[in-house]
Amino acid sequence: MIHYLFGLRRWTDCLNALALVGVGGTLWFAFVWQIVYHDLPCPLCLLQRVAFAMVGIGLMLNVCFGSRPAHYGIAILSALAGMVSSARQVLLHIAPGDPGYGMPFLGLHFYTWALIAFFLLALYLGVLLMLDGMKQKDAADIPRSPGWLGNLGVYSFLVILLVMFVATLLECGLGPCPDDPTDYLWIPGN
């Protein structure tokens, strides 16, 4: 079976690890876009990144400790939270003539992509929760080997969380961000 190639015991472990890689990849993409195009995230955009991070924590718990309903609950609730902030931003810019916030990617703004991604994540996690044959008798508090795919997801996720923390600190400092930020608050010369 293909999950053995990834160093994992079950195919649902493989899907959890893949989702973690996907969530980390989404955050990496948003960060690279921010740097390359100097497209600074607004407060609601930052909240959507936090929601992706919260989804990633639920997936990381599944990868590091094995699947549990509580871990899926964390990931699904986080995806719903992300849908609230992204839907709110879509509604803010939905009126005709509104140019939206930031640069579009493939015809859609990032908050619209975020809304689609959160919906798909909630759907994916719900289906995975139904199909995952969890062994409840296993000790949940004992960490286990996540396999190389899980390790890839875990380390890329940890690094992007650290990078986002530093980038947000440089952009906003220790206060609220302006609604339409144009420069980094804590970088001299800006």
């Binding site: 991070a53 919260m54 924590i57 990381m60 590091c64 400790f65 940890l158 947000t168 400092g173 961000c177």
Partner: peptide, 18 residues
Amino acid sequence: MIIVLPFLTALISAWFTW
């Protein structure tokens, strides 16, 4: 209101998971 605060707490949560 410190916008960076949830990034810090999420990082701590991920750290404890790891």
